[in-house]
């Protein structure tokens, strides 16, 4: 069935990166759409959090899939980076890149920043181990009071900074990653080639800006406990 040489094939490895990257990016889009309910006030995002919790076992299926995708992406990302470096044991004295981008050449660093950010984010909002405690945790309708948590935590410059930097890494990673993924899936041709790079940067910018808008708007007082309360 799966011959051992299969996973040594450079195209297979690249396809695994692209497919796991696609799953992660799909999660990012869904996550952003969910987050945007913060603009509807507590009734938006608290209700969203409540419904997520009610998915029960299904939520764990999603989380398991996501974890598997992340595991594949990170392990093959590290492996490919090490192998690709080994393929050029000696660097050029002079090297003048023509077409590659800084974002493309630093995928491993933006990727590792994203992994660090994801760890921080889980400790922060999923496990609620960082920042001021929110009591009571449930709102008047017995839903998790995510709204208050966001509005209180994102008044703190340190948190805002970490989230904005994290989204910078996301922009960087996806500005190369999305276009690269389309090429890996073989969806590119002479006509689409000049556009995929641009499209990739544009979507990456929209996603990163969408996420970053939340801490930024809260920090600058556009979303407040009073103003947001519906």
């Amino acid at each position: 069935m799966f011959h051992p040489t299969l996973f040594r094939n450079p195209v297979v490895r690249k396809l695994l990166m692209a497919f796991s990257g696609l799953l992660l990016a799909g999660f990012i889009v869904a996550h952003l759409l969910g987050n945007l309910t913060v603009f509807l006030g507590p009734n938006g995002i608290n209700a969203y959090a409540h419904h997520l919790k009610q998915l029960g076992p299904l939520l764990w299926v999603f989380r398991g899939g996501l974890l598997a995708a992340a595991g594949i992406h990170v392990s093959f990302g590290l492996l490919l980076t090490l192998e690709n470096r080994r393929a050029r044991p000696m660097a050029y004295y002079r090297n003048k890149p023509q077409r590659s981008t800084l974002a493309g050449r630093t995928m491993i660093y933006s990727g590792l920043c994203l992994a660090a950010f994801a760890g921080f984010h889980l400790l922060h909002f999923t496990l609620r181990l960082l920042g001021p405690e929110i009591t009571p945790w449930l709102d008047a309708l017995q839903r998790p009071d995510v709204f208050s948590m966001l509005v209180i935590h994102f008044r703190l410059a340190g948190f805002v900074l970490v989230y904005i930097l994290g989204m910078g890494a996301l922009y960087f990673h996806l500005s190369h990653g999305l276009g690269s993924m389309l090429q890996t899936f073989g969806l590119n041709n002479a006509r689409t080639l000049p556009w995929f790079g641009l499209l990739s940067s544009l979507i990456a910018a929209l996603l990163a800006a969408g996420f970053a808008a939340i801490p930024a708007l809260i920090f600058f007082g556009f979303i407040t406990v009073q103003g947001g309360a519906a």
Binding site: T5, R8, N9, P10, V11, R13, K14, L80, E83, N84, R85, R86, A87, R88, P97, Q98, R99, S100, T101, G104, R105, M107, H176, G179, S180, Q183, T184
Partner: peptide, 18 residues
């Protein structure tokens, strides 16, 4: 051909287009 490429010690494609 792609298997041979790996065996010969070439790296993998990163879609950099250099």
């Amino acid at each position: 051909m792609t298997e041979a490429m790996q065996r010969e010690g070439f790296g993998g494609c990163g879609n950099h287009y250099e």
